[in-house]
């Protein structure tokens, strides 16, 4: 059962990615950026598996992927923050995160180590962004009903994944060096489950966007 869940979770990004590709032409901007993000996730997953099969370390991918992921999430969220100040802060944060990752890789956690600092910081920043988005959306009278708004689902996926994994990412290097392989695998299985939930919610986001563009927007 665990292996089944793990395998499904490994390829869970493919379903929303394929759906996003099929509906790309009619999708709104946020969904298009999400599709690109999912594409990068799929490529990263395949590369990671190919390297693992050949016995080559794939940890360097987790220095590159968070930067791309964070950058694309800022592109997804940016149009939905109304003030120029908020949008510029988001852009500045993306640049800041890139610089941080470079410094971290060069001086603190090289490519053969798991990027715990970068991943944790990314989780923290995205948690803050998603909560901020939630608070600003409350007063937005132009929104359609929640179920039909793709950003609601994207934000839910972010809120369900990143805050929950924050502590785990931060401690992962320590856990790997101080505890058994079985124990670490158990924790990564939980991560795989959360990842699966995240990608399923992304699938709902892409589907609702397609549905709302197909029929008139309800208010």
């Amino acid at each position: 059962m665990k292996e089944v869940v793990k395998t499904i979770a490994s390829y869970a990004s493919f379903l929303p990615f394929i759906l996003g590709l099929l509906l790309f032409q009619r999708a709104e901007k946020s969904i298009r950026y999400l599709t690109v993000l999912l594409g990068i996730a799929c490529i990263t997953e395949l590369t990671s598996k190919a390297l693992a099969i050949r016995g080559i370390s794939n940890l360097f991918l987790f220095h590159i992927y968070p930067v791309a992921e964070f950058f694309l999430f800022t592109l997804i969220y940016r149009p939905h923050f109304r003030t120029a100040r908020a949008r510029n802060t988001l852009s500045g944060t993306a640049i800041g995160f890139l610089i941080f990752t470079l410094v971290n890789t060069v001086f603190f956690q090289p490519l053969h180590e798991f990027n715990t600092y970068g991943r944790s910081l990314e989780s923290l920043l995205l948690s803050v962004i998603s909560v901020t988005y939630l608070m600003t959306e409350i007063n937005n009278m132009e929104s359609v009903t929640k179920r039909e708004q793709p950003m609601f689902w994207i934000n839910t996926a972010v809120l369900m994944y990143f805050p929950l994994n924050l502590v785990f990412f931060f401690m992962s290097n320590f856990l790997w060096t101080h505890f058994s392989r079985e124990f670490n695998n158990f924790l990564w299985d939980i991560h795989a489950l959360l990842s699966l939930i995240q990608y399923l919610i992304f699938t709902i986001a892409i589907y609702t966007n397609w549905k709302s563009r197909k029929s008139p927007v309800l208010s």
Binding site: L134, E137, I138, S143, L166, M171, I190
Partner: peptide
């Protein structure tokens, strides 16, 4: 360690679900 990680995940999950629920209720009322 397991307990600590699971509790922190559980706490974050409750917080996330609570925020989503509260924002939905507030928005609907508004």
């Amino acid at each position: 360690i397991t307990g600590f990680i699971l509790m922190s995940m559980g706490g974050m999950l409750i917080l996330a679900l609570g925020l989503i629920f509260l924002s939905r209720v507030s928005k609907t009322q508004l």
